[in-house]
């Protein structure tokens, strides 16, 4: 552990395990909100030179990732009173085990890459890879549509880490792109979710099985 950055990143790694163990949507949303805050402040400790512009950008990201998006999704589940279970395909214990294996694998893989910027952090590449993998895992291993959206957001958190800390080039346009991606994705998915709820009276994606092959 070297300094504040690794401490913050270890919190992000812990949030992955918590999210895998969450069986209820409100809990999962809180974990994701926490993760959003943690991931957004990482660039502040990355040792890059901070301009006013990048500070504003980081704060905006923090507000959107940590508060606006979780709140938006929370309102959706309240409004359409969706069943609160995440409906796992892979059980919680197996998920946690998979999460641990993922972090171990990511640590092994993360040390094989050379990074252009010296961040003094042991945990940066492993955390980014873990977040990407964990997001994918939630997308595949949960049937509830909102849990899938949350998995997507977790994946975006991983990309945000890569985009803001691995390289210092074209930083703003990368940040802008990621924000656009998350916002647009979440907005359209929220609209879709309401419609899924209205049409099927549920958001279990197992109902979405008419179209095959």
């Amino acid at each position: 552990m070297n300094g504040p950055m690794d401490t913050i990143l270890s919190l992000a790694l812990l949030s992955i395990l918590f999210s895998f163990a969450s069986s209820r949507l409100p809990g999962l949303i809180k974990v994701l909100a926490f993760q959003g805050v943690v991931v957004s402040i990482v660039p502040l400790f990355a040792g890059h030179h901070l301009s006013i512009g990048s500070l504003v950008f980081t704060l905006t990201t923090l507000v959107i990732r940590g508060f606006a998006i979780p709140l938006c999704i929370y309102m959706v589940i309240k409004k359409v009173s969706i069943a609160r279970e995440v409906e796992p395909i892979v059980g919680y214990h197996a998920s946690i085990l998979a999460g641990l294996l993922l972090i171990v694998g990511a640590t092994w893989a993360g040390h094989r890459f050379d990074l252009p910027v010296n961040t003094n952090s042991q945990l940066l590449p492993p955390t980014a890879i873990s977040l990407l993998g964990a997001g994918m895992f939630l997308l595949m291993a949960r049937r509830n549509a909102i849990a899938m959206v949350l998995g997507y957001i977790m994946m975006e958190n991983g990309i945000y880490l890569v985009g803001t800390t691995f390289s210092m080039r074209a930083l703003h346009i990368v940040e802008f792109g990621i924000l656009l991606d998350v916002l647009a994705g979440v907005m359209i998915m929220a609209v879709m979710l309401q419609n899924i709820k209205q049409t099927f009276d549920d958001v279990d994606t197992a109902r979405l099985r008419t179209l095959k092959e």
Binding site: L115, P116, L132, I159, V162, G163, F166, S167, R169, A170, V174, G177, I178, D181
Partner: peptide, 9 residues
Amino acid sequence: LLGSVLITV
């Protein structure tokens, strides 16, 4: 997007 970011790396 990740791929594009990696090209900047």
